[in-house]
């Protein structure tokens, strides 16, 4: 079986739940206490698709770090972006849409998946504002978290041919 490493980067405003999503996905844990991320933390998880094991190196980038200098220096070589917004806070959605535009100019070929986190806090089954996204997740309950990362891995796998 082949093993291939892939770099996945999570971006989004502060306190949208990027770290919680990673902790839920990698360690199956959720912590109610909020501690904003300092800098960049890298985690890993392996996903098997067909005869390939993808070693996902997941970069958790602090919400206050999003800037173009960072893209140039550290985000080169990214294979997929997971853009996270808080499905209960409209401004966080607009922030990642703005970010998406910048990312598209820097990394036009790289996969980007938009997810709305904190779906457990929604009153209905969709955000109360207009939003175009790929998936809703809950880092708290774990709902769709595995699927979000799997979706990314599949997109990468399809590109590999």
């Amino acid at each position: 079986m082949r093993e291939i490493s892939k770099k996945i980067v999570l971006l989004g405003n502060e306190s949208v739940g990027k770290t919680s999503l990673i902790k839920q996905y990698v360690h199956s844990i959720f912590n109610e206490e909020y501690l904003s991320t300092i800098g960049i933390n890298i985690s890993k998880k392996s996903v098997v698709l067909g005869d390939v094991t993808y070693k996902l190196l997941i970069w958790d980038v602090a919400g206050d770090l999003m800037n173009e200098q960072l893209y140039d220096a550290y985000l080169r070589g990214t294979h997929a972006f997971l853009l996270v917004f808080d499905s209960t806070r409209e401004e966080t959605y607009h922030a990642i849409i703005k970010e998406l535009e910048v990312l598209n100019s820097y990394f036009p070929e790289v996969n980007k998946v938009i997810i709305g986190n904190k779906m457990d806090l929604l009153e209905g089954n969709a955000p109360s504002f207009d939003a175009d996204f790929d998936l809703l997740t809950s880092a708290k309950t774990g709902e769709n978290v595995e699927d979000a990362f799997l979706d990314l891995a599949k997109r990468i796998n399809n590109e590999q041919g």
Binding site: I38, G39, I40, N41, K44
Partner: peptide
């Protein structure tokens, strides 16, 4: 976390990789 204010004030980028 205990050094958060110094890190912010100095604008240090921390990259932690324990993979």
């Amino acid at each position: 976390s205990g050094m958060r204010s110094t890190i912010k004030k100095k604008g240090v980028l921390f990259i932690c990789d324990f993979t």
